[in-house]
Structure formats: structure tokens, C-alpha cells
Design a protein around this nucleic acid. Structure first.
Lengths: 127, 127
DNA sequence: TCCATGTTTCAACTACTCGTGAAACGTTGA
DNA sequence: TCAACGTTTCACGAGTAGTTGAAACATGGA
């Protein structure tokens, strides 16, 4: 993920309402939620929500699709994952102490990647 | 990690110079670098650097200590790790697709955590 | 076609962040 | 004690983000 994209993702996430928005959208997955419902859930005015949605979409963290009168917003998991991955790998160079903070998540990640296989040995820490 | 702390960490990181600063500091570890050297490395004026350093320190991402005339700045790995962990676990609820983006880092994290042990089974994905 | 609904756009304002250069501060060595 | 050095603080101006309410736009149903 390019640096500029990461920067806009970070600044998009660095706002209370927008962080709430992502948290609301993540469990909905690709199905997403219409803007009106999001506004109700977060207690935001329509125009303010629209503003924040645009910021998140611009940053590649959410997507939108139109369904009749509604605009459905859903999280772009690859976008968020890319930003987090940048922080972890490119920015912190997978520093052990940083990774240790994410230990619980790492367990789940590895199970996902390895799908039950034995843990592969790391041969090249920089790859 | 508290929400407000995460928000200030994110907005501190959402700036080119400050992201550079963290990237510069991470490999130095606890040893850190004096402000002047950082300024030279990043091509920032002293006052600008001081501003950015204050923002990062305020957000709990770096620490400082005074050594004679110099102020040495070093990265606060737990602070950065905490913010990343929040994004991964609390915000994205360890969503498989997000974790998959961090697969390579996860391998290293798990090796760190398990220290060569066999991969433990996950019994409670929500824990 | 007309109206109601869902959503975005706009204009105006406020508040904040960023950057610059100068001044101030604290420490060290002469 | 004084000057030099490393760093922070300050005042200022420019630019950008955030909020609000009203208006505009698009769609679907009567």
C-alpha cells in the first residue's frame, strides 16, 4: 500500500465518528448498511454523515453501492487491512515488541493463513 | 487502550513527517536519537521538529529523556502496538480478511509469542 | 405528474493544524 | 561569568477540516 494512501486512511480513522462508523460497519461485512440507518445508529445529521462517509470512501476504507433510493455503505476490509499492515510491517518493521501487543490477533491470523497446518519456520525475517 | 488515546495516536501518525519520524526511530529502539540528529535526518527545522515530537509524545508514541544538552527521543513500542492492536481487535474485531492482510507479520508475531511451541488451538474466537 | 423519502451538495462560519522565523530557555565548556 | 549550542516556545499568517442548516437532487409510490 502506498504511503499517501496510508496517510489518508490514518487521518480518516483519526476521528471519533468515523472510527465508530467503521466499528459499526465491520460486523455487517459486505452486506453493509444504508446511510440513513448509519445516521440513526450514530446519532449524526444526514449532512455530517455524508461528509464522514465521503472521507472514508475517499481513503479507501469503505465502499458504496446504490440500491433504489438508498446508498449502502460497507467496509473495505482490504483497505483497512492494508493500512494496518503498513503500520505493522513497513513502519514498525515487525518489531517484536509491537507484534507482541497484537499477539491475540496474531493467533487468529495465523490460524487463518495456515488453516490448521503446523507453524512454518520463518527463514527470512525481511521477506 | 482507551479510545481517546487511540484517536490521538492515529491523528499523530496521520502526518508525513511524523510517520517518517517513527520509521526513523523504530530501528533505534530504546537507545533513540537526539532531536538535532532527527532534524538533520528528516530535513526539518528545529521548531517544526519540536512541534511534531511534542505531538507524538503527547499521543504516547514516543518518549524523551534529557542527556546533558540533548533531548533523546525513542519510540514507545507499547504505545504504537496498542494503537495497532486496537484497530485490529477492537475496531475490526479480528476480522479474518483484515488479519489476512497482516499474515506475514502474524507469522512473526506468533513465533514470538509461542517461541517455537506448537500452534495452540483457538477455542474462543471472541476472547 | 406530484409528493415523500433518502442522500448529497452548498455556503457560511468556527476551530484547528501546519509552517516560519525570532526569541527564550537551559546547559556546557572556556 | 560569558558565549555557544541544542532545544523549545511564541506570535503570526495561511490553509484545511469540522459543523450547521438550507437547498438541491434522485428515486419510488400514489
Amino acid at each position: 500500500m502506498e504511503r499517501s494512501k496510508v496517510l489518508s486512511a490514518l487521518s480518516a480513522l483519526a476521528h471519533e465518528s468515523r472510527l465508530d462508523l467503521v466499528r459499526l460497519l465491520v460486523p455487517r461485512g459486505k452486506e453493509g448498511l444504508p446511510a440513513g440507518e448509519i445516521a440513526r445508529a450514530l446519532g449524526l445529521s444526514a449532512s455530517r454523515l455524508s461528509f464522514h462517509l465521503a472521507a472514508l470512501e475517499q481513503a479507501g476504507l469503505i465502499r458504496s453501492r446504490k440500491v433504489s433510493r438508498n446508498v449502502i455503505y460497507s467496509v473495505d476490509l482490504a483497505g483497512i487491512g492494508g493500512a494496518i499492515s503498513y503500520l505493522l510491517a513497513d513502519c514498525c518493521m515487525d518489531h517484536p515488541e509491537v507484534l507482541a501487543c497484537c499477539g491475540a490477533s496474531a493467533h487468529r491470523a495465523l490460524h487463518l493463513v495456515a488453516e490448521g497446518e503446523e507453524v512454518p519456520r520463518i527463514t527470512d525475517p525481511e521477506s
